[in-house]
Design a binder for these strands. Sequence first.
DNA 1: TAAACATTGTTAAAATATTCACAGCAGTAT
DNA 2: ATACTGCTGTGAATATTTTAACAATGTTTA
Lengths: 213, 213
Amino acid sequence: MPLNTSEKTVGRLSLYRRLLQELSTASVSYVYSHQLATKAGVTAAKLRRDIMAIGYTGSPSKGYDVVKLAESIAHFLEDPEGQPAVIIGVGNLGRAIMSYFGGRRPKLQLVAAFDSDEKKVNRVIHNIRCFSADSLEEYIVQNSIKVAVITVPVTQAQNVADILVRSGVKGIMNFAPIHLRVPSDVFIEDIDLAISLEKVAYFARQNKQKKEA
Amino acid sequence: MPLNTSEKTVGRLSLYRRLLQELSTASVSYVYSHQLATKAGVTAAKLRRDIMAIGYTGSPSKGYDVVKLAESIAHFLEDPEGQPAVIIGVGNLGRAIMSYFGGRRPKLQLVAAFDSDEKKVNRVIHNIRCFSADSLEEYIVQNSIKVAVITVPVTQAQNVADILVRSGVKGIMNFAPIHLRVPSDVFIEDIDLAISLEKVAYFARQNKQKKEA
DNA sequence: TAAACATTGTTAAAATATTCACAGCAGTAT
DNA sequence: ATACTGCTGTGAATATTTTAACAATGTTTA
């Protein structure tokens, strides 16, 4: 079944789904690959190939059924049971992420935050309760958490990752500028803001364009 | 000269430089490709190829001179004159980014923030002064700003991007979940937190690993 | 009903990116 | 000196990702 479900394809599917939800809200029933591709900033061929990966089939001359395709992608990407996630590190960035995700997706929610600063413990920030870092492992095990976000200082990141892995976490969104050592069955998505900004600065100087946005 | 300066290579060079600076601080003089590669989480061959792109040459049996390689990468990535950058949107995420970059790199600094909320204007947050959104265009032109960060709500993002492009900005780090339409000589780095988290959740479920971290 | 049309799904080709693998070299040991 | 070692730089091979191109197809029009 998964002929071609690369990381890039998965990311784009998530994007397509968001665009489809917007179309659905705007009461659009059908959309052509080139229309959706334009909104997403990709080529129509690439989009069709991505959609191949989930086995959904559109109709020639009508295109894709907006609601059905959105459902197909959701079915592919999401756990119908929902996937609770936690965040570790309630600093500036951590709070911004909490605000960003606070009560957002029904299937993918931040359910708890952790920090070693006792002054933050038991505060509720953007609807997410903050717990003591000491209770991290217990919380993860008890609630079968598989997804975590790391926004602690770089010096603590590997230590936190070790605890997460030990407790059963299988996917980590990591904002700390360090390569985390984890077993190969744990997925890491590194978001390195300093590197991203340096890239922008470099290409701004070169006046080069990306091959495709 | 630039045989192979892809976006990926540029990003990794930035990473190598940071690691080299750490080594330099720790008084390490030389490093082998496989050592640096391990720290970076890439293969030694890939690292050597990346370094080829900037024309630096190490020594067999001694490896790379830590300080010289760091300087070579800096020379390649950075404008020696410095590159001031601005941020538009002083919400939760914007403030976190300001905190993250506030007075960080000497060559790549956030020098001003902009927001349409008059209550924020003239406040100084993490050492960065906040200006009225009305003065954005004038500021960019007067200070020859080429790099900008967008952290405004999605509804405002394209509008802000249009102003930036009109004023001469050539690189944008975009946190708004929308594909910005800009001329092809303007570089966009999209950071889509929702997509990133969905990817993590997906691969956490699949228990799949990235091909290489 | 049949012809015309624009779209999808997909195969094949091209472009990119990574890895392999090794010649050649600078140190080190004998 | 000479042989040995383990590294770098890099051509060639491989793997991955994207693009091109088109047969098949459902819809509309005449």
